[in-house]
């Protein structure tokens, strides 16, 4: 388990999402934390980029030969529709882009990176892939990966956690042992095996990471249920004839899931690091897919520049690593601030 799994840090969570939240104590404390605000702004910017990836890269889509334009059903004459909000293509590339839009367009096939030019405004990385395009669409890849893995982890975690906490007994023991096993194995190596077996694609990377993502949430929720069960008011409710199942679903789950959701969403940054690590080991999305980790991997052979010009290829490594760090930093700054707020005892 890593730090951002809620089981460690969330033991004292007491969410207060009530009316007048902007004026609430937690919110005021959050607003006083400049780092948290910075993180929030960074993430907002990334969300904007992810949503408008299509329009932001319209000039690349127009100028390179690529399948995205083909699959959108645009011809060379109608390709400028991508810039025009009254045309359907503009909205389609925002809300339902064809899979091929995630492939970085190429300016030639050479392994040697090319410096920024009119066509490739941030240069091309090894293999002629457009860096700017990869960064922009990579934002979507990062959100997809992060959101799906966390979402899946939460879903399974909530189901298994509540079953475990509600029924107890051998089911609880079984699930807890499975979770122990998951915590005990080296996740990265096993993720590598899974991706190698299932084949290289973003989907399979997501599957591999999801297999390990739910355990922390399940254990946290089970702990919450057990804790609440011990509380006096539950005994009181029981004495009044309430069933424990009802108690869990009416009182425990809504409270715990709220904090679980907030905390889990902050794990997205960590998940993106996992995706990037797999890509770096050559096991991420297929070659050419807009993915930051892969772009760092492409840059590996070019970091040292040329003799006498150590920074000849600076753009190849700088941009993708800068963007990954910025993205993860955004989540972690926000996450730290939120945890700080939630940890405070009134």
């Amino acid at each position: 388990m890593d730090i951002s799994s809620p089981a460690v840090s969330a033991q004292t969570v007491t969410p207060k999402v009530k009316k007048g939240w902007w004026q609430s104590k937690a919110m005021r404390r959050f607003r006083r934390n400049p780092l948290g605000i910075i993180g929030f702004i960074i993430l907002l910017a990334f969300v904007f980029v992810a949503i408008f990836a299509g329009p932001l890269t319209s000039s690349q889509l127009i100028n390179y030969r690529n399948n995205c334009v083909r699959d959108l059903g645009l011809s060379r004459s109608t390709v400028t529709d991508l810039r025009n909000p009254v045309k359907p293509a503009f909205w389609r590339i925002i809300f339902a882009p064809p899979g091929s839009c995630f492939n970085m367009p190429r300016d030639g096939f050479s392994e040697i990176p090319k410096p920024p030019s009119e066509l490739s405004i941030l240069g091309t990385t090894s293999g002629g892939y457009d860096i700017y395009y990869g960064l922009i669409w990579g934002t979507r890849t990062a959100f997809y990966g992060g959101i799906i893995v966390t979402g899946f982890g939460l879903l399974v975690g909530i189901i298994i956690g509540s079953i475990s906490g509600y029924f107890g007994g051998w089911i609880d023991t079984l699930f807890m042992r499975i979770i122990d096993v998951i915590f005990a194995i080296p996740g990265l190596v096993l993720s590598m095996v899974i991706v190698t077996i299932l084949g290289q694609s973003l989907r399979n990377v997501i599957i591999a990471l999801s297999i390990f993502a739910w355990a922390g949430y399940a254990r946290f929720l089970r702990g919450e249920i057990l804790r609440v069960r011990e509380l006096d008011f539950v005994d009181g409710a029981k004495a009044l004839g309430a069933r424990s199942g009802r108690l869990i679903f009416r009182h425990v789950l809504p409270n715990s899931i709220g904090s679980l959701l907030i905390l889990a969403s902050l794990d997205i940054g960590t998940i993106v690091l996992g995706v990037a690590a797999l890509s770096f080991l050559g096991l991420g999305a297929p070659a050419g897919y807009a993915d930051w980790g892969q772009m760092v991997n492409f840059a590996r052979g070019w970091m040292l520049g040329l003799p006498g010009q150590p920074f000849a290829y600076w753009y190849v490594i700088f941009w993708p690593s800068f963007i990954i760090v910025l993205f993860v930093l955004g989540w972690n700054l926000l996450g730290d601030a939120v945890r700080d707020v939630m940890d405070v005892k009134s």
Binding site: I3, L35, G269, G293, V296, R300, S321, I324, L329, D336
Partner: peptide, 18 residues
């Protein structure tokens, strides 16, 4: 110390290593 540790925690291992 918080900013530094958050920054380091945000670094992919391979980026720092390289």
């Amino acid at each position: 110390s918080r900013t530094t540790s958050i920054f380091l925690w945000s670094l992919p291992t391979f980026v720092l290593a390289i």
